[in-house]
Amino acid sequence: MLLFAVCLAPLAMLAWDVWRALAGDLEALGADPGEAIVHHLGEWGIRLLIATLAVSSIARLTGRPSLIRYRRMVGLFAFVYVALHFSAYFGILAGAELAALLGDLSERPYIIAGGGALLILIPLALTSTRAAQRRLRHNWRRLHRLVYVAAVLAVLHIAWLAKVSYVDAYIYGSLALLLLGERVFQWVKTSQKAQQNSRQNV
């Protein structure tokens, strides 16, 4: 419940700012409200996406596998923010013109990367239910490993978008790298153990 509120807070804050801006308060969203909305949603999209990756790592590193149960909610919120981010970009910045969207998609690497991340997150969100998990069985894990690709694309999206300051790209990039590194480390450890086991068996 607390987690739900935390994940929802940035959206509520944005709604409040939009309300104030519509009421004529310039300070709420600044001179370029469309850009501010899109940016805010995107920022929280990548934060929650990385938080989703962090949930598994923290559960492993602290030896508290029960934490995993929070992963779905954080992941779904990440998807909601990314989907709203795209909708705001399309509806406001691209003027809801399909031609503008297609033009951007064919020419702008950062839009391609962002679009790719969104496309990946759609099936992951759709198969996030327990029922889907049961139906897909071990394929579910394979499918959901795509989240790593989405995270890398999201970081690229930010890096290619930056005009001069790469602070955001550095921060999110190194967090993503750290979390992916943790998984590689675990994977190497498990496969070494497996090797040792198979040697002992021989």
């Binding site: 001179a31 469309g34 909305i37 003027g95 033009g103 951007d104 690497p109 950062y110």
Partner: peptide, 16 residues
């Protein structure tokens, strides 16, 4: 190289 210059947002405080 990273965005179109074919159009612009004329900032007037409006959203759309």
């Amino acid at each position: 190289p990273r965005w179109s210059q074919a159009n612009e947002r004329r900032l007037d405080g409006s959203f759309f």
